[in-house]
């Protein structure tokens, strides 16, 4: 029991040392929610599936919040005529990529790991979104 308490104290200390970083990220999430509207996001898409897939990836990288919200926004974007390719990229990038958390990620893991992780995730997101939307539309 004593050794668990020691391990817990150490883990709590580690988590507390990250508190300013976590508060900053949550603060940025709050600002995003307050200032970026759904209409603003929808206005980014121009109708070209290739360009919109890239736009969807970048919009997903910038956007923050629970994954559930990305599904709701993605559904609205589909209703507004945005392609499934772009929406798939948006939904996937929302969870796997994040500009807002980059400073914390670099601070914790170091620049090299973060660069490789984000590059791989970026390329994968475009490939997976394109393939998933393509297969879905082909089977429909």
């Amino acid at each position: 029991m004593q050794s668990f308490l020691n391990a817990f104290k150490k883990a709590t200390k580690n988590m507390l040392s990250m508190a300013p970083m976590i508060l900053a990220i949550v603060g940025l999430v709050g600002l995003f929610q307050g200032f970026v509207t759904r209409q603003m996001l929808a206005s980014l898409f121009g109708g070209n599936p290739v360009a919109d897939t890239l736009v969807g990836t970048f919009a997903g990288m910038i956007a923050v919040g629970q994954a559930m919200i990305s599904y709701i926004l993605g559904g609205e974007l589909l209703d507004q005529g945005v392609s499934l390719y772009a929406v798939a990229a948006f939904v996937l990038a929302w969870v796997t990529l994040g500009i807002v958390q980059l400073p914390m990620e670099i601070e914790v893991f170091g620049g090299r790991f973060v660069l490789y992780r984000n590059l791989l995730a970026f390329v994968s997101t475009i490939l997976v979104a394109t393939a998933a939307a393509g297969v879905t539309l082909w089977l429909a």
Partner: peptide, 10 residues
């Protein structure tokens, strides 16, 4: 503490 500058910026 890690990230004090970022918190100040936010």
């Amino acid at each position: 503490f890690r990230g004090l500058k970022l918190l100040g910026f936010v």
